[in-house]
Design a protein around this nucleic acid. Structure first.
Length: 492
RNA sequence: GUCCCCGUCGUCUAGAGGCCCAGGACGCUGGCCUUUCAAGCCGGUAACACGGGUUCGAAUCCCGUCGGGGACACCA
């Protein structure tokens, strides 16, 4: 492991190239809030020619799993948030898994111990829990009482190897403060802080400790994370001070709230799962666009591409108020992107959704025209695939009974029969002549075009909504369309 | 309970003392277009939490109240 460098100021060394990181704990899927944090860090790095580091904070022995590591990697990859250093991209500060950096943590803890800036604590969890309960019952928050603070040697019956290492908070009246890029200046008096645990007896670091050691060693210049971490910034700052290190800058991002106005959590909010949206047919462009507008804006711009984000994003424009997840707006944005992206791209992305419905459409000439017709009336790829499969790719259709009752009875059937004959007689199965049939038949019968178009539509698609008749018939194909009309006719 | 942060339409937001009797977007809604549904276009609905200051003038600054959220672990 690298020996710790002397007190250094990373920013002094690389003033213009930011080094930022996303440091998730692999205890589940990629969280939507994490995705936004990752995005903003990514943008910052890319915009200013910096480096985006991915670090796995896998020190939660019970909840961290390799599957979660993979899930997070998959999520970031799907979103296209490429990291420069991290798992799979070993850089100068490897390894990027905290559980592989234990020697480093021990080393710095020993130094702090030797300098009297940390101490071994022999209190058992049971003792601490009991004290905590007493404190809570009294209506206050628990603060470590300093039991082992001045101990020079292990108490009788205890061993140094079994002790945790606590940070020794300076006593006295001071206070810590920092200038948050998003929130402004925040201050906390020493008296609100206590002697927190840095290292467990088994050498696994706790968040506040591992985070500081790694951020410094990895030469992070700006830490951007969720607002739930503002309070942990204070003990971290104390550590920087004790180690004689220059702290990075901080930016605390507003929280993303669920419909119930509470922080989006994996437990209570299914929409917190990035990949759920993928499965639902939301595209990365839309999800990223949606998520960055929560807590950040650029004038009145709503539909924002990655290139524009890259041009516009800055942490100093990040807001301060938490935002509520709005599924309707996500859907709207997704449709915007469905319409903006090249047809070929959307078609390609539609394939797996069709496949899930048992349809192999790769190479099908109708795919792109279908996308062109359907993206005007679909919010998601899933929705588009459902319509495509049910109406255009499968043979036969399911007639909606209500629609049939309204448009496939009495006079309508006569009109449909006339239309069928005109259609069958057409020399060319193309949009204009196809639409022309609706016109000629309706004129001949002196009825509105709807009287002719709707029966055809219901007969051919099974329900009352679809793209224009000509387009629909073209997409369904001559033989299949005539078959469906015949089936409808036979039914009446 | 303590500490921290926050408080503009239902939601996301613009607004950095006069340009604001507050603008955009989603949603909802009326209309146009129209062979249906969409899309598109035009219009409507709806907000500066409250109370004190400061100022010629406050959504914008200060204080208080209330409200919301977050953090208070040998989780991160």
């Amino acid at each position: 492991m690298t020996p710790h460098p002397l007190p250094a100021n990373p920013r002094a060394r690389m003033p213009s190239a930011p080094r930022v990181r996303f440091a998730p704990s692999p205890t589940g899927y990629l969280h939507i809030g994490g995705a936004r944090t990752a995005l903003m860090n990514y943008l910052q790095a890319r915009r200013y020619g910096g480096t985006f580091i991915l670090r796995m904070e896998d020190t939660d022995q019970v909840r961290s799993t390799p599957e979660s590591v993979q899930a997070i990697l998959d999520g970031l990859n799907w979103l296209g948030l490429e990291w420069d250093e991290g798992p799979g991209k070993e850089g100068p500060h490897a390894p990027y898994f905290q559980t592989q950096r234990l020697d480093t943590y021990r080393e710095h803890a020993d130094r702090l111990l030797a300098e009297g800036k940390a101490f071994r604590c022999y209190c058992t969890r049971e003792e601490l829990d009991a004290q905590r309960q007493v404190a809570e019952k009294a209506g206050g928050a628990f603060k470590y009482p300093g039991t082992c603070r001045e101990l020079k040697a292990p108490p009788p019956g205890k061993r140094a190897e079994d002790a945790v290492i606590r940070f020794k908070m300076p006593s006295g009246d001071g206070s810590v403060s920092f200038d948050d890029k998003a929130l402004g200046k925040i201050t906390k008096p020493y008296s609100d802080l206590d002697d927190w645990v840095m290292l467990r007896a088994d050498g696994i670091p706790l968040y506040n400790y591992g985070c500081v050691i790694d951020d410094h060693l990895m030469e992070i210049t700006l830490v951007a994370r969720g607002q739930e971490h503002v309070n942990s910034t204070f003990p971290q700052l104390m550590l920087y001070q004790a180690l004689g290190w220059q702290p990075p800058e901080f930016a605390h991002l507003p929280l993303i709230l669920g419909p119930d106005r509470e922080k989006l959590s994996k437990r209570k909010h299914p929409e917190a799962d990035v990949m759920l949206h993928k499965r639902n047919g939301i595209m990365p462009e839309a999800l990223l666009n949606f998520v960055i507008r929560l807590g950040w804006s650029h004038g009145n711009d709503e539909v924002i591409s990655r290139e524009q984000m890259l041009q516009w994003f800055d942490f100093s424009d990040v807001g301060t108020t938490s935002g509520v997840w709005d599924p309707k707006k996500l859907l709207w944005l997704n449709q915007q992107w469905l319409k903006l992206l090249p047809e070929a791209t959307v078609a390609e992305r539609l394939l797996p959704f069709l496949e899930a419905k048992g349809i192999q459409a790769r190479g099908d000439a109708r795919l792109e025209p279908l996308v062109r017709a359907l993206r005007e009336r679909s919010n998601t790829l899933e929705e588009m695939a459902t319509t495509a499969a049910n109406v255009y790719f499968r043979s036969g259709i399911t007639l909606d009974e209500k629609a049939a009752a309204k448009h496939l009875t009495g006079d309508s059937l006569g009109l449909l029969r006339q239309a069928r004959e005109a259609l069958a007689a057409l020399p060319e199965w193309k949009v204009e002549p196809l639409d022309g049939v609706v016109k000629t038949v309706s004129e001949a019968a002196s009825v509105g075009m709807g009287k002719v178009a709707q029966p055809i539509r219901v007969a051919v698609t099974g329900n009352t909504t679809s793209p224009g008749i000509g387009e629909t018939l073209l997409l369904v194909g001559r033989d299949e369309a005539l078959r469906r009309i015949d089936a409808a006719l036979a039914r009446g």
